[in-house]
């Protein structure tokens, strides 16, 4: 049987993650990696639409928060188990993504970006006024009892996030390397030409927005159990939306591993800064890095490496 390198690394990562839960006993590590992995899923999801398809979404925090509040609402109303909550958040945010996909029929470029930003604001206003989930004051969410085969709930959440991050990356990799990815790239470069070359542009855009929405919702679904207190300010946080854009931009938007690299790098820097300096510094770090990369390396780290290789190849040849 032939196992390709990607799936082998997936296996290694998952085993290493599981071993980590058994070996490390400081909960801090799990809190930190959870936040980085959450950013990674958001970045990978954003990149499916933003990087592959060329539609910029400024409203990532909106999708994330809908995932968060799906959990809050369904947990409070029915006390459903976590897998069901994940699924529900995925479906609801997938539908929200589908609706955003129909927006692309009328809104292109910067107008689409503005519409996504506006949608996030509308959603935040709704949640602010929705008493059942705590409204603007927020609500406490109790972690479920029992933590499966793990020592405590945070280890479970960490492992769950690791599995989700790997799954999101696998989906993004599949989308980019299949015929769908070819079609999305054509749409990004020129939508009218793509349509005339037989690319079913609407259908592919809907696949792209739905996948993006569903993944962002799933990234948000475990969040209430992670923080145990949820309010609109934390669920719709600016840093979530900014990170979702900055991570792919820094890593490189054209390929599936770009956002993964960006998320790991930026996430690690942010978490280190939080511990060593202050958590208030995060947005500043993102801002500075984003400006630097957009002006100096618009194709991100992946682009830098590709250019370097090309130059080296040209010098040798």
């Amino acid at each position: 049987m032939k196992i390709d390198k990607f799936w082998l690394s997936v296996l290694v990562i998952l085993i290493a993650g599981f071993a980590f839960t058994k070996l490390a006993d400081n909960e801090f590590y799990f809190f930190t990696t959870y936040v980085v992995l959450q950013g990674l899923i958001m970045a990978v999801a954003w990149n499916i639409l933003g990087g592959f398809t060329g539609y910029v979404n400024f409203g990532s925090a909106g999708f994330f928060a809908v995932g968060v509040y799906t959990t809050v609402a369904l947990n409070k109303a029915f006390g459903l188990p976590l897998p069901v909550l994940l699924l529900a958040a995925g479906v609801i945010c997938g539908l929200l993504g589908l609706a955003a996909g129909y927006l692309t029929l009328r809104l292109k470029g910067v107008y689409f970006a503005i519409a996504t930003l506006a949608t996030a604001l509308v959603l935040e206003t709704i949640v602010n006024n929705w008493k059942f989930v705590g409204g603007a004051a927020g609500t406490y969410v109790l972690q479920p009892k029992g933590s499966f085969i793990f020592d405590n709930y945070i280890e479970l959440l960490f492992m769950l996030m690791l599995v989700l991050a790997v799954a999101a990356t696998a989906i993004s990799r599949y989308l980019s390397s299949s015929r769908i990815g070819q079609g999305l790239a054509a749409i990004r470069d020129d939508e009218v030409a793509a349509e005339c070359m037989g690319v079913p542009t609407l259908r592919l855009k809907l696949i792209s927005t739905t996948a993006m929405g569903a993944l962002m919702g799933i990234a948000g679904a475990p969040f209430p159990f992670f923080v145990t207190f949820v309010d609109p300010v934390s669920a719709f946080a600016l840093v979530i939306a900014v990170n979702a854009i900055a991570m792919p931009m820094i890593g490189g938007t054209a390929v599936w591993y770009g956002p993964v690299i960006g998320a790991l790098l930026l996430g690690a820097i942010q978490e280190t800064a939080t511990v060593t300096i202050s958590s208030e510094l995060n947005l500043l770090i993102v801002g500075v890095m984003l400006v630097l990369f957009i002006t100096l390396a618009p194709k991100g780290i992946v682009g830098l490496i590709q250019d370097y290789k090309k130059k080296k190849g040209a010098n040798n040849g």
């Binding site: 790239a185 054509a186 470069d189 020129d190 030409a193 793509a194 005339c196």
Partner: peptide
């Protein structure tokens, strides 16, 4: 099939 008056290559 059609070609465009102003060329529309897939630039990437």
């Amino acid at each position: 099939a059609r070609s465009f008056q102003i060329p529309k290559p897939f630039k990437s």
